[in-house]
């Protein structure tokens, strides 16, 4: 390091003493332009919803015999998100079960409407919602991811199960 400082930068043909490294610059300018394309592609992916928080691919819906589960494919660490469970018209009481793996990654901030009762059984946390006989019901679960990673969990709507997966981005 000391030797380089004592020698100083090289002197160019035009007399200017400067360490321009033009070849390096040429390569870097090309890398720069390539990086800008990557930036644009990442923005495009974000607009499509592949980085969570809205967009066409951010959420998906899985249809079950007893209803539908609309959930996020991509959530963000420490950012609130929601999933919606819609029960088909039928019994007066609808039952939503979510396995414990869900709660290891996600902190539930609230459920709308509030369940009539909640309890644990061997499948996980069971929430029971009341509805008039023959009326459909939609329940929204608000959550907040506790850590980034890939989360796979099972939900059961009135006895019909579905395996869902959410990627929690850092």
């Amino acid at each position: 390091m000391a030797k380089t400082q004592l020698q100083g930068p090289p002197i160019r043909k035009d007399g200017l003493q400067i360490d321009e490294r033009r070849h390096f610059q040429e390569i870097f300018w090309t890398v720069e332009r390539f990086a800008w394309i990557i930036f644009a592609l990442i923005l495009l992916l974000a607009l499509l919803g592949l980085t969570g928080s809205g967009g066409y691919f951010a959420k998906t819906t899985q249809t079950l015999d007893a209803g539908t589960a609309e959930y996020a494919r991509f959530s963000r660490w420490e950012a609130s998100d929601e999933m919606r469970f819609t029960f088909n018209a039928g019994a007066g009481t609808h039952r939503l079960t979510i396995e414990p793996a869900f709660y290891e990654y996600l902190q539930v901030e609230g459920v709308q409407p509030a369940p009539e009762r909640a309890f644990f059984n061997e499948d996980g946390l069971v929430m029971e919602f009341a509805a008039e006989q023959g009326a459909p019901l939609s329940a929204v679960l608000y959550y907040r991811p506790l850590r980034p990673g890939y989360l796979s969990y099972r939900v059961v709507l009135d006895g019909s199960a579905a395996d869902l997966a959410t990627v929690v981005l850092p």
Binding site: R12, D14, L16, I18, D19, E20, R21, R22, F24, Q25, F28
Partner: peptide, 10 residues
Amino acid sequence: DGTPTVLISL
């Protein structure tokens, strides 16, 4: 840091 670029020479 990058390197300086000569934009006008002589």
